[in-house]
Design a protein around this nucleic acid. Structure first.
Lengths: 116, 116
DNA sequence: CTTATACTTAACTAACGTGTTAATTAACAC
DNA sequence: GTGTTAATTAACACGTTAGTTAAGTATAAG
C-alpha cells in the first residue's frame, strides 16, 4: 500500500471526490446525500467506492445511524497535504518577492539619489 | 483529458515525483540528475515518464541545452493545489478555534462568577 | 412476516498508470 | 565517419482504478 501523503493526493485527484468534500464542508451528509448530485452520471456502488477512498485517505469519517451512513469532513485530513504544499509556497511567492525587492531597491536608490 | 487540478493532484500522488520536485526546489537539474537517486529502483525511461507527468501538470518546465534537458520547478504550478486546499484550512484549525472559544468562555464565566 | 430504504459486496470489464527492455534520435567529441 | 552521452519512443506486461449490473445485508415501517 501507499504512504499517507500519496493516498491523500490520489484521493484529491478526482473531481467527484473533491465535490463530495465540498458538500461535506457545508455539513454532515449520508452516502445517499453525497450520491444525489452524481446519480445521473454514475451508480450508487460507484459512489460507495469514492466514499471509501476518501475514508481510507483519512479525509472523512463515516459512522452509522440505523441504515444511514452519515459522513463528516475530517478536519486534520487535508492538513498533511497542506503542510507538504506549503513547503513550496516561497516558489510561487518568489515573483512577488522579486517585485518587492525591486520596489524597495528603486525606492532606496531614489532616496539615495536625492540625498546625493 | 482531466482538469488541471486533478492532473496536479495526480502528479503529486507519487513519492518519486515529489522527490523530484524536492530536488528541483534546490535548483535546476537535468533529467539524468533527477534520475540519479532512482536508478537502482527504476530505469531511465521510467524517469522520463515521471518528468513528463510533472511537466504536463504544469509543475515543472523542461528546456533544451545540447543533449541535456534542464528542468526547473515552476513557481505557480503548485499554487492551484495550495489554493484549493486552503479553502479547507478552517477545518483543521477548527479545533484551535474551539479551544480558543472554550478558553474565552471559561475566562468570562470565571469573571462572571467572581462578579456575582 | 413482508416490504421498503440505505447501502455494500461480488463479479466483471475497460481504461489507465507504471514499470520493463530494445531500439531510436540528437548533440557532441575525436 | 565512429563512438559516447543524454534522453526519448515503441512495444509490451501487469496491477490498479473506476465504472457497470446483479445480488446481498441490515434496519425500519406497516
Amino acid at each position: 500500500m501507499q504512504d499517507n501523503l500519496s493516498q491523500t493526493f490520489a484521493a484529491l485527484a478526482d473531481p467527484t471526490r473533491r465535490a463530495m468534500l465540498a458538500q461535506l464542508s457545508k455539513g454532515e451528509a449520508n452516502v445517499s446525500d453525497l450520491a444525489k448530485p452524481f446519480l445521473k452520471k454514475m451508480s450508487l456502488p460507484a459512489i460507495t467506492r469514492h466514499v471509501k477512498v476518501l475514508e481510507r485517505a483519512g479525509l472523512i469519517t463515516k459512522t452509522r445511524d440505523a441504515q444511514w451512513r452519515p459522513c463528516k469532513l475530517r478536519g486534520d485530513g487535508l492538513r498533511v497535504a497542506a503542510d507538504w504544499v506549503d513547503q513550496y509556497r516561497v516558489f510561487w511567492e518568489e515573483s512577488f518577492d522579486r517585485l518587492d525587492a525591486y520596489l524597495k531597491k528603486s525606492l532606496k536608490d531614489t532616496k539615495d539619489g536625492h540625498k546625493k
